[in-house]
Design a protein around this nucleic acid. Structure first.
Length: 269
DNA sequence: TCGATCCTGTAG
DNA sequence: CTACAGGATCGA
């Protein structure tokens, strides 16, 4: 589930549910989740502290605990992080959890088990985040910044956008959606996109992420146990063979970097 | 810079 | 059964 918008929604919900909570115990149920850090050490270090802040950097979730300890969680492909009223009722796919006061549980749920959880000092955490490019929804992410990075890269546009060193938070879905909105072919070398198209791309990235954050956040707040939250309307992702909403041509799927890229052969050249 | 690899679940 | 998946890292 997680690219930037979904991770943002998780963080906001966590702030609502877990801020200020005291951690009575921590359990790591799968050692790979904290590797190379030792599960027992993660458990003993984090227990007894209070959750002071929750923030997002790219697709990373950072929680600061009392005493200057930081938790860094990456959801990867299928991870989710949420609070439940009774920690004993956690799902089978729980890879780690924090037991909170009153028996609540902060659950790191991840069926595919590719997600990661680590502990750091403030300096370590900050250092790791330095490897990430600018936050696309911050003022740092200007057209100039994007253009400067683009000039230096011959990568296919789609792979460039998914590289967290250039822009933090885009994944397979929103990279494809942004390229569609900017009418750029996903295989086009990044340094061969002209200034007008690059400006369009910059705007498209900001726009699609803004919209998706809004959707992710509102669908999360609507806790309806019955009705499924509506999904963000995707123009190309997962729509191979369907007609393009703009020109009607059949959308295509091509492999890039071992993953699927969806695009419109009519609109994106 | 690219492919293999980590995992499990689900769809075809 | 195979293909594929909203991600990132590591070794060649």
């Amino acid at each position: 589930m997680p690219e930037l918008p979904e991770v943002e929604a998780v963080c906001r919900k966590l702030r609502r549910d877990a801020l200020g909570a005291w951690i009575s115990a921590v359990r790591v149920l799968r050692s790979a989740t904290t590797r190379p850090q030792k599960p027992r050490r993660v458990e003993s270090l984090a227990a007894g502290r209070t959750i002071e802040t929750v923030e997002r950097r790219g697709k990373n979730i950072l929680m600061s605990l009392s005493g200057g300890l930081w938790v860094r969680i990456h959801l990867r492909m299928t991870g989710n992080l949420y609070v439940i009223p009774d920690v004993r009722l956690r799902p089978a796919s729980t890879r780690a959890y924090f037991e909170l006061e009153g028996g609540r549980g902060l659950v790191f749920d991840d069926p595919r088990a590719l997600g990661r959880l680590h502990l750091h000092t403030a300096a370590e955490a900050a250092r790791l985040m330095e490897d990430l490019g600018p936050e696309p929804l911050s003022r740092e992410f200007t057209l100039d910044v994007l253009a400067a990075a683009a000039r230096r890269s011959r990568k296919p546009a789609k792979l460039f956008l998914m590289d967290q060193q250039h822009v933090a938070g885009l994944g397979n879905i929103y990279a494809a959606e942004a390229l569609f909105r900017a009418h750029i072919h996903p295989a086009r070398p990044m340094n061969r996109i002209g200034p007008p198209r690059l400006a369009l791309l910059h705007a498209a990235i900001v726009e699609v992420l803004r919209e998706a954050v809004h959707w992710a956040v509102t669908s999360y707040r609507r806790p309806g146990e019955f009705s499924e939250a509506e999904d963000f309307p995707l123009a190309v992702y997962g729509r191979e063979g369907e007609p393009c909403v703009t020109c009607g041509r059949r959308l295509r799927r091509i492999p890039q970097g071992g993953r699927s890229t969806y695009y419109c052969p009519g609109c994106q050249r």
